[in-house]
Design a protein around this nucleic acid. Structure first.
Lengths: 132, 132
DNA sequence: CAATTGATGTAATAACATAACAGTGCCGTT
DNA sequence: AACGGCACTGTTATGTTATTACATCAATTG
């Protein structure tokens, strides 16, 4: 999917995420954008839906939060499964791509004739700096 | 962790989950247990916390819902990472254990000196029966 | 122009989760 | 028995996340 020109709201939400050094909840984004005229959650959610669709943003299910994609130039060609490490200490999120896991999950799905649409892999724990 | 005797509330919540053929949200469980005297969400969430701790129940992050563990006799010895396939059509959830994925995730975490506490793997899509 | 499509604005509400505080029953010790 | 500690419970209120419903606007197209 080629990324179209972002609308004003989409660009504002994208900006909030790229200028943050960690994941943000939809309501945190809303608060950051009140000065730019945002008034309601739906303005954020609608923009996020599109950004997710374009592959510019990831949703972290275990956090109910969103991050800008770390690899900004790979959106034209669908990238595969992305895994995330999420530090409970500092909130740092790292993206991982791994062929082995991707193939293995694909094999497991095929074995039960399951048609995969979206895969979530999230590793919660302590990053190097935050581990005791 | 040895599983202790369940309390009344824990047993009721566990029962609701085992008698369901799919995942249930906390509020759905609450509604099912109103006749047994449940009145407030916290009664459900507190029981769920314990059941999760004992490994009798899994939380599906992408669904905000809970399922009874499929392998009821494996709770004494910590089981490793569990992956789930979740059918968008019929709601069926399947548990998968896989050594390859587990080791690979472990390797990836070690490579960045990340100390894993909890891993979530959820595959959303269409099961054999629901695929078009 | 009329019709369609996609984006927006707003209010209200639904769904998910926790905080704070009080009370209860059980167990082990004195 | 009296005490203290602990885990579980009950209840109210509140906080957080996400969606429904409806109206409007602008651009595109037949």
């Amino acid at each position: 999917m080629a990324t179209p020109q972002l609308t004003k709201n989409q660009a504002l939400v994208m900006g909030a995420l790229t200028h943050s050094d960690g994941p943000l909840s939809a309501y945190t984004i809303l608060d950051k954008l009140r000065d730019q005229g945002f008034r309601a959650p739906l303005q954020v959610y609608r923009a996020l839906d599109k950004l997710l669709e374009y592959g510019l943003v990831h949703r972290l299910e275990s956090l109910n939060a969103f991050v800008a994609c770390a690899c900004p130039h790979e959106h034209e060609h669908e990238h595969g499964v992305t895994a995330f490490t999420i530090c409970e200490g500092c909130g740092q999120v790292t993206e991982l791509q791994d062929e082995v896991i991707e193939e293995r999950l694909s094999t497991l799905a095929r074995a039960q004739e399951f048609k995969t649409e979206k895969t979530t892999i999230e590793i919660r724990g302590q990053c190097k700096s935050c581990a005791i």
